[in-house]
Design a protein around this nucleic acid. Structure first.
Length: 426
RNA sequence: GGAGAGAUGGCUGAGUGGUCGAAAGCGCUCCCCUGCUAAGGGAGUAUACGUUGAUAGCGUAUCGAGGGUUCGAAUCCCUCUCUCUCCGCCA
């Protein structure tokens, strides 16, 4: 959520900054609703003040043994008036609040203009796509013969967009998770955390998935408003919802492996083949809570931490600075890491590293106290470090050999009992 | 699943209808005192919103959440959530 002071400031400036993100601010509505709110609140509070004064007088009169009937008569109609004003205020305030909650975060100055991924700015490329002496298969064809990646059985068990992994592929996925966690804990100084995979609506509101993106979530209990997590970002960041952290304890750096559940509403035709876009996938997530002045540096560092994983796996990738139109709702700035997929002859997203500044912190009231000062909102950041399912796909496709075997990246070999090759077919 | 207890400020913990935003202690901040030992004394110490030039004043709200009774609710009533204890069950 944006600072409410913004809506009392220069609305034109605010509107033009939001336009970069493809959001059309209804400035006229905002300013009239804000005026209404102010008037209603002032009137309501004046009546409350009057009531408090009268009640106090009645109390004092009673204590002295004086008659209170005349005083009671004075306030006879006050209750009704107050109730009416209160109702008016609450109606106006909740309407205004509802609108404010749908306004996205402001993009940073250095976010490129643009409407979609074609306008993202390339920052750097790492590694060279491998030149194959044969026609490389995609991960589906590569694993088809051995049956280690089974979409049909998964559809029988559940529905489409799920997968069953067997044998060495299941082990490879587990190895990847273990490897990523170890690197972030041991080399990058993150604290490993384990969290609930089912969260309440307050948590989803805190990180910005609700109320606007309810259709993307798997709600598993309507009555209690419980949801499967779309990413570990939600439970991990919300650990500090409604908390005031001692400034000396920042930065907080946490890493968490979790399954992620996404309904993928509105993406029916996209990436229907293979493991690229699933309803359930594994991810290792990096989350940082930092002092506001540190968030720019933290964003660069966190991105480097995600990049380190791809570098150690020796997977070619590039880094792009998302343009305004491609930025997520809560993000002020996002770097995507895109890994090379030989079968598609293109780079595909494998990690998204974002600085949310105080946007999420305001929604969840995550604050810090430095010295004797007042509590102030901290900054939150997160990034995939990295998406496990897509990393698995990238390894299969980039490490495949002419005979249908897949070489094991050397950093993963210790996690696979020293194995150097995976046999994809018998 | 059964029975019971509870939820108050950074923490501990009083407060059962009226000058209560809330005693006291701890912690923290500032000041003072004291050359003799982790001492003593004083002052201050919640958050949000509104008003304002103002982190000054003033107003409003907040004692788990929501609703109700009342001129007036931390205190009474209802619903919900969570925590704890005992029993049962169970990875």
């Amino acid at each position: 959520m944006l600072d409410q002071k913004w809506i009392r400031g220069d609305l034109d400036d605010l509107a033009s900054r939001l336009r970069k993100k493809g959001f059309e601010l209804d400035a006229a509505y905002l300013s009239s609703a804000e005026q209404e709110r102010k008037a209603a609140q002032t009137q309501m509070e004046a009546l409350q003040s009057e009531r408090n004064r009268s009640s106090k007088a009645i109390g004092q009169a009673k204590a002295k043994g004086e008659a209170i009937e005349p005083l009671l008569a004075e306030v006879a109609t006050l209750g009704e008036q107050l109730e009416a004003e209160k109702a008016k205020f609450e109606a106006v305030a909740s309407k205004l609040q509802g609108y404010l909650q749908t306004i996205p975060n402001l993009p940073d100055e250095d976010v490129p203009d643009g409407t979609d991924e074609a306008d993202n700015a390339l920052l750097r490329t790492w590694g060279e796509p491998k030149a194959f002496q044969f026609e490389p298969l995609d991960h589906v064809d590569l694993t088809a013969a051995g049956g280690a990646m089974d979409f049909d059985v998964a559809a029988k068990l559940s529905q489409s967009r799920f997968v069953v992994l067997r044998g060495e592929l299941a082990q490879l996925q587990r190895a990847l998770i273990q490897f990523m966690l170890d690197v972030h804990v041991e080399e990058h100084g993150y604290e490993e955390v384990y969290v609930p995979f089912i969260v309440n609506s307050d948590s989803l509101f805190g990180t910005g998935q609700l109320p606007k993106f309810a259709e993307d979530q798997f709600r598993i209990d309507a009555e209690r408003e419980l949801y499967l997590i779309p990413t570990a970002e939600v439970p991990v960041t919300n650990i500090y919802r409604d908390a005031i952290i001692n400034g000396g304890e920042l930065p907080l750096k946490m890493v968490c492996h979790s399954p992620c559940f996404r309904s993928e509403a509105g993406s029916y035709g996209r990436d229907t083949r293979g493991m690229i876009r699933q309803h359930q996938f594994e991810k290792v997530e990096l989350v940082q809570l930092v002092r506001p002045e540190d968030s720019d540096n933290a964003h660069e560092a966190l991105t480097q931490h995600a990049e380190a994983i791809l570098q150690k796996l020796e997977l070619p990738y590039r880094v792009v600075n998302l343009c305004g139109g491609d930025l997520g709702f809560s993000a002020a700035k996002t770097y995507d890491l895109e890994v090379w997929l030989p079968s598609q002859q293109t780079y595909r997203e494998i990690s998204s590293c974002s600085n949310f500044r105080d946007f999420q912190a305001r929604r969840m009231q995550a604050r810090m106290r430095s010295g004797n000062g007042k509590p102030e909102l901290l900054h939150t950041l997160n990034g995939s470090g990295v998406a496990v399912g897509r990393a698995l796909v990238a390894i299969l496709e980039n490490y495949q050999e002419a005979d249908g075997q897949v070489a094991v990246p050397s950093v993963l070999q210790p996690y696979l009992g020293g194995k150097t090759q995976l046999l994809m077919r018998d």
